[in-house]
Design a protein around this nucleic acid. Structure first.
Length: 254
DNA sequence: ATGGTGGGTTCCCCA
């Protein structure tokens, strides 16, 4: 079983990259973030034609998350504990086989100390409550998506330049750490301890062309899921070529 | 220190 996560930065704008990629890689499950469309605007047919069921929580213009699965999707839950009417579409959960899956698009936070930064920390607190209440660590838990947080300097191309900047600040890392402490493990680090594994590169600075990226897309697994995990791979090829997303897909094999 | 690009919307926001 292979599960992928990919911030596609608009599913409609990315169709010509995502569909051939699905045909080539054929992952069983794909968690998409930033689909940037409402439910009724989601291009269902081409995915269904490839054999995928779809669970989604769309939103106009911003955010939006979707789960594609070749295996039966059960028990779909949108949002986090404490989400109200009008909450942003940033989280969707379901069960597939014996995996409890939570697909996340964490608030970016813009700038340390900003209003959006405070919102990010508040959202992460609700993520912590959600995992504590709905994702018992005794189960096979898979949290994946765009966390918009690096774990440590190995995830950052220029740690000095990014020191205490957004995506790298101590309060963000500690907030994510409190989620991890509920019994989750950073799956990539089971297989690769080296610095320089990145999943996102800024368009504006031509980050990918310069090899300047950050690792902010993660697979966080409970103990039993981690034990079943056989590998985690970033597909760099998908970040190159015409009209790419600014994120590469990450695949976990079980 | 600033702005660069890219996506979606609507005359600008978000990343």
């Amino acid at each position: 079983m292979q599960i992928a996560t990919w911030n596609v930065n608009s599913v409609r704008a990315r169709l010509e990259r995502v569909l051939p990629w699905l045909e080539a890689r054929r992952p069983d499950v794909v968690c998409l973030q930033e689909i940037k469309c409402q439910d009724e605007q989601f291009p269902r047919e081409p995915f269904e034609d490839l054999g995928y069921q779809i669970a989604l929580w769309g939103q106009k213009t911003y955010n939006g998350v979707a789960i594609l699965s070749r295996r039966r999707i059960e028990g779909v839950v949108r949002g986090l504990v404490g989400d109200g009417e009008g909450s942003e579409a940033r989280a969707i959960a379901c069960q597939i086989d014996d995996f409890l899956l939570l697909n996340l698009y964490v608030v970016n936070g813009e700038k340390v100390g900003s209003e959006k930064y405070a919102k990010k920390l508040g959202w992460l607190e609700r993520l912590e409550r959600t995992v504590a209440e709905r994702f018992p660590s005794s189960e096979r838990i898979v949290l994946c998506g765009d966390f918009n947080i690096t774990f440590d300097d190995r995830d950052v191309y220029d740690p000095a330049a990014w020191h205490e900047k957004i995506l790298c600040s101590t309060p963000e890392r500690e907030a994510l750490g409190r989620v991890m402490r509920l019994g989750l493990h950073d799956a990539l680090r089971k297989f690769d301890q080296r610095p320089g594994v990145y999943t996102w590169w800024d368009f504006r600075t031509k980050g990918f062309e310069r090899g300047q990226g950050l690792r902010i897309d993660h697979f966080l697994l409970s103990e039993s899921a981690l034990a079943a995990c056989r590998g985690v791979e970033v597909d760099l090829e998908a970040r190159g070529g015409p009209k790419p997303s600014d994120h590469a897909p990450v695949l976990a094999t079980f």
